[in-house]
Computed example of a mutant assay.
Amino acid sequence: MPAPRIPLITELPIIEQPLHRSGALLDLLTRRLRVAGESALNAANLRPRHLLVLTVLRDLGESSQADLATTLQLDRTNLVGLLNELETDGLIERRRSPEDRRRHTVVLTQDGRERLAAAEFTLAAAEDVVFAALTHKQRETLYELLLKATAAGC
């Protein structure tokens, strides 16, 4: 998938420029969240990609391997290795599709649900540490602003 095109400065509308730029601060916060998150995931014996697969399976339900690869934007070969790890740990199951015996569907196990819940709880605690200087209301405002900014796309 090609990277999104960033408009040239001459193509951008003229608007009042903000006094401060947020990009560097967002990058710093992202790095802090990533470090805290990876530490939390290590404690749960998971990697970020594991968390992503488990979350998608929980939220979207059973999926074919091909559909899961498309949803996660992962090469199918890379996904197979990732699923092998999760299946070895008993967090997912792969089953033959009753409609097409050549296809496999991927299902989150009860152990997978429990490990995902524990990881999310630990990640929430790590996020609390990173955003400790903000009040609850400020964190809600930050979330709403980030949601609005990400919904706009590029």
Rank of each mutant, 00 (worst) to 15 (best):
L26N: 14
R94H: 01
D75V: 07
P18H: 05
A126G: 04
A43T: 15
L91H: 15
E99V: 13
N42R: 13
K137T: 02
P98W: 05
E120H: 02
E93H: 14
E93F: 14
L60T: 03
T122C: 02
A151L: 02
G61C: 05
R96P: 05
Q110P: 12
T135A: 03
T77H: 08
P7C: 00
S64Q: 09
L28E: 12
A151M: 03
T109W: 09
N42E: 10
R115S: 10
A119H: 00
N42Q: 13
E140N: 06
E144I: 15
E38T: 06
D89I: 00
R21I: 05
A152I: 12
R102Y: 09
D100V: 03
L33R: 02
T122F: 04
H104D: 08
G112W: 00
A24D: 05
A43P: 02
I9S: 14
S63V: 01
G153A: 12
D67T: 05
D67Y: 10
R58M: 02
C154P: 11
E16S: 12
T109F: 09
T71Q: 12
Q65P: 08
A126Y: 03
R21C: 04
T77M: 11
G90A: 08
A117W: 03
E127K: 01
L60N: 06
Q110F: 10
L146R: 02
E99S: 14
L116I: 04
L142S: 00
R102K: 12
V35C: 03
P18R: 07
I92V: 15
A151R: 10
L72F: 06
Q73L: 13
E120M: 04
L145F: 04
D89F: 01
R21G: 12
P98H: 09
R95Q: 13
R103A: 14
T150E: 12
E114F: 12
P2E: 11
S97C: 00
L57G: 02
N45F: 13
A44R: 08
A119N: 00
G112D: 05
I6K: 11
A126I: 03
E114K: 14
S39W: 15
L147N: 09
I6M: 09
A3F: 12
E11R: 07
A66Q: 15
A43K: 11
